[in-house]
């Protein structure tokens, strides 16, 4: 590890130079399953994506799509049993994390790749002050002295715009509002200056006015540090605002992937199209929403062929038998639909 990492610096902009070719974080053909007493849940089934420094990749999906499990696998947070990573690789700076032992994995976590969860209240320990919880990161990971850790923790609280950080250092999590707690979670995640931040529904539990504050904060922090952001969400609105690229997940697979504007304007998969059609919009007085029929599949019994075919308005016979690969629509655009051309041309 380069020495910059060890400096007590609150400006992690002077990060390591890329020492390898290829993307910063690259997930390839990842599969995670949970073996429960009722059967095997194929939560993630062959997912590949990558993200580069300074870039925001949104992983969009509904509940049960596997979007969170995939992120937990990257973080090495899958409890085993019941969870098992059955295939694939997760490469950070070219190094496969799945091959590391737990100790090495631990060092990657927090220092190189950090994560923010949806529920900040249950993610913070209620019996320690928030300041202590941030300062602990420096003490444990960097062996900082008590005074030094405290100073850097307060710096960090300032950076996430917690008013009167010095005096709030000794407050407990329950003394903060939801938005402030999420800021503290972000401060903890960013304390060691990670290169990749995975944010799992970071604003879902928050009110809309606070959501806006948190998304602005994440964008600002990212600009400061050229950190890569993987934003996991179900909210198409949040994605449209901040993401560079989107990967849409359905039933444990990525069904469509591409730059955000193209993907919204010319979706190449019927599921993406269906999602866009089914959300009510502020700028549109449509009387009738066009929902997707049916409900997402049970992950113990994913439909054969294309897992979306039972709900798909354009499904043909082969959709039930042939699993579609991720077709390259054009450069940087992919769709896992046999009839993507039909979907794309429907926009003309």
């Amino acid at each position: 590890m380069p020495a910059t990492e060890m400096l007590p610096s609150s400006t992690p902009t002077t990060k390591r130079r890329p020492d390898h070719e290829g993307p910063l974080l690259e997930v390839e053909d990842l599969a995670v399953e949970f073996r429960t007493r009722d059967g095997v849940v194929h939560a993630v089934d062959g997912v590949s994506y990558h993200v580069d420094a300074g870039e925001t990749l949104a992983i969009l999906g509904e509940s049960g799509s596997g979007k969170s499990v995939g992120a937990q696998a990257v973080m090495g947070l899958i409890d085993s049993p019941p969870g098992h990573i059955t295939r694939g690789s997760i490469r950070y700076r070219g190094k496969d994390l799945l091959g590391l032992d737990e100790g090495a994995r631990q060092r990657v976590r927090g220092r190189d790749i950090a994560m923010v969860f949806q529920d900040a209240l249950s993610s913070l320990n209620p019996v320690f002050t928030v300041g202590d919880q941030i300062a602990e990161m420096y003490r444990v990971h960097e062996g900082a002295s008590r005074a030094d850790a405290r100073r850097r923790a307060i710096d960090m609280m300032d950076r996430v715009h917690i008013p009167a950080a010095t005096s709030r250092f000794d407050d407990y999590p329950h003394q903060f509002s939801g938005g402030m707690r999420q800021r503290i979670m972000i401060a903890m995640a960013l304390s060691l200056g990670p290169d990749v931040l995975i944010a799992d529904e970071p604003t879902t539990a928050l009110d809309v006015t606070v959501q806006a504050q948190i998304m602005d904060l994440l964008a600002e922090l990212q600009r400061e540090s050229t950190m890569a952001l993987v934003l996991i969400t179900h909210d198409l609105g949040v994605v449209a605002d901040v993401a560079d690229r989107i990967a849409v997940m359905y039933a444990g697979r990525i069904v469509e992937h591409g730059p955000v504007i193209e993907l919204y304007e010319r979706p190449a998969h019927p599921y993406t199209q269906g999602l866009i059609d089914s959300i009510p919009r502020m700028d549109d007085d449509r009387e009738e929403l066009v929902p997707i029929a049916g409900a997402p599949p049970n992950l113990m019994k994913v439909p054969s062929g294309c897992s979306f075919h039972p709900r798909c308005p354009i499904a043909r016979d082969e959709c039930a038998t042939d699993e579609p690969p991720l077709y390259a629509v054009w450069s940087g655009r992919e769709s896992a639909c046999h009839f993507w051309e039909e979907v794309v041309s429907s926009h003309d």
Binding site: V208, T209, V239, D241, E265, I276, M282, D283
Partner: peptide
């Protein structure tokens, strides 16, 4: 006004 303006638009062009 603040509440309405805070709703993220699902249209990246307007973002």
């Amino acid at each position: 006004q603040a509440l309405l303006s805070a709703v993220p638009s699902p249209d990246p062009r307007k973002a």
